[in-house]
Amino acid sequence: MSATAKKGAAKKDGANQPFIYRHYDQEKLRDALRKMYLIRQFEEGAEESYMRGLIHGTMHLSIGQEASAVGICLGLSDEDQITSTHRGHGHCIAKGADVSRMFAEFFGKTTGYCRGRGGSMHIADVSTGNLGANGIVGGGLPIAVGAALTAKKMKTGNVVVCFFGDGANNEGAFHEALNMAAIWKLPVIFVCENNGYGMSTSVARATAVPNIADRASAYAMPGVIVDGNVVSDVAEAMHDATERARNGEGPTLIECKTYRYRGHSKSDRNRYRTKEEIEEWMTERDPIEAFESQLMEFGVIDQNGIEEIRESVRKEIEAGIEFAKESPMPEVANLEKYVYTEQA
């Protein structure tokens, strides 16, 4: 699936162009932009549906973090796997999931990816390699290492990406998982989306080192810090890490510095950060705006093209919500289905 650019595919050539313009063709880049819109509009659609009482429970929105999800998944195939987090809608979409089935899951419907059993916090699409979001901070880290162990044992050549947040880096599971991945040289890439806060507690107050990537040295793997709001920077770090993993050289820790615009979850009163801080990220460092203007600068897309994609995404979201609304509810009689594997 990874579409490598042919020579001269981009308008400008030469080494001055950022990584993705050298490495991917224009269609792939426009698709990356589309996925970012899709994530943002999905989150907005989910938020609105929640406000209107169509979705219950809670959810953790990833608005503002679209570049890391898309930049990391850009070069992956469906056979490459990811483990995701409670803030995992973006990962799921970036990996290729269908937003209709995601909405259906949030609405608790049988057509949802988890047949209404998982909801937002367990959203998964195994068919595109997403082994699932996780309600436990750090829960996915050892599982990703296990998936990478399978890849190594079965010699599939696939890589596994383990998304986690800054909060997870203080869980024991993080340290145990990184250590095992390193001693066994497994094809896993640990991607920390550092959005500055574990719920309300800032990284500065919770973590003894200034950067999460600093912890990589304790496990003898490269620790790479990137601007998580710049798609190309994320994708370049990911490309290097993937090469390393596929060559049997072992894991990499990538830290994407980013920011979430919304609160931790629906209960958040935003008392731990200032309006100014939020506004600064939204106006100065928005990942989608930055990517749009860069794509225009390099002649990959024009204003009309942007409008076109936005409109098609808007329609896809609308249709997705409609699909979810119209889908059937699960039957209570099937409550215990899927606890165990049905055996013939």
Partner: peptide, 11 residues
């Protein structure tokens, strides 16, 4: 957890 991850993916 590694055992769980390996089991889910085919081992």
């Amino acid at each position: 957890g590694v055992a769980v991850g390996a089991a889910v993916t085919g081992m």
